[in-house]
């Protein structure tokens, strides 16, 4: 199932949290060779993890971490402006209706539809909180995965080449994309919405009017 947890709620799910930070170390340091810091417990954490971000975590049936991503609002400190601002055409991404997603991570043993399930959570977040876009930082390998999942970003800018290429992109909210991602992930929208409501309460369920 999908869990939506703020950093200050992770202590209630120690196994899941530990798995997430270790799998991040495995993915970003070991497999991708990114210049990230791994602590003595084998966990990859950075300063954005200290800002009480919202994590979306795919929990495998045995309670372990299957995959995850990290969400922060672009009105506060975020990587897309602080670290990769030079890739967005000189205009910082800063809007109450755009949230940033980073550290999209999959465990080595993740079940096949994990990436799609996590992507679907992005759609639920946009729908549930009236966002217009999600902004993200991703490596070249992810572009193919996003296409397979059924939701490709608009790439704003990239640096580096080949495997080392890093890009900043935007996903506009689209009900169609949400449904397509859900279908490919094999998760009924009703179930996905139920997980969302479980986290944020029964009232966070309506799509805001699109008049704004």
């Amino acid at each position: 199932m999908l869990r939506y947890l703020y950093a200050d709620e992770l202590h209630k799910f120690p196994k899941l949290a530990e798995g997430m930070f270790r799998d991040r170390a495995d993915q970003f340091k070991t497999r991708l060779g990114w210049d990230v810091h791994v602590n003595e417990k084998g966990e990859e954490r950075d300063q954005y993890d200290d800002l009480n971000p919202l994590y979306v975590i795919w929990e495998e049936p045995d309670g372990s971490h299957g995959g995850s991503m990290r969400i922060l609002p672009t009105t506060g400190p975020v990587m897309v402006t602080d670290v990769f601002g030079h890739l967005t055409g000189g205009q910082p991404i800063r809007s109450p209706l755009i949230w940033e997603v980073t550290r999209f991570c999959l465990s080595r043993g993740a079940s096949p539809h994990t990436a799609g399930a996590i992507m679907l959570s992005g759609g639920e977040v946009m729908e549930g909180f009236g966002l217009t876009h999600i902004a993200g930082v991703f490596d070249a390998r992810m572009i193919r995965i996003y296409r397979l999942i059924g939701s490709s970003p608009i790439v704003l800018g990239s640096e580096g080449t080949g495997r080392d290429q890093i890009s900043v992109g935007l996903w506009p909210y689209s009900a169609e994309d949400c449904n397509r991602v859900a279908e490919r992930a094999g998760i009924p929208r009703e179930l996905s919405r139920l997980w969302f409501r479980t986290a944020f309460g029964p009232t966070a369920r309506h799509r805001f009017a699109l008049s704004a």
Partner: peptide
Amino acid sequence: FQRFQPVDWKA
């Protein structure tokens, strides 16, 4: 506090 999603008081 420490959150960033809108909250209905009922939640």
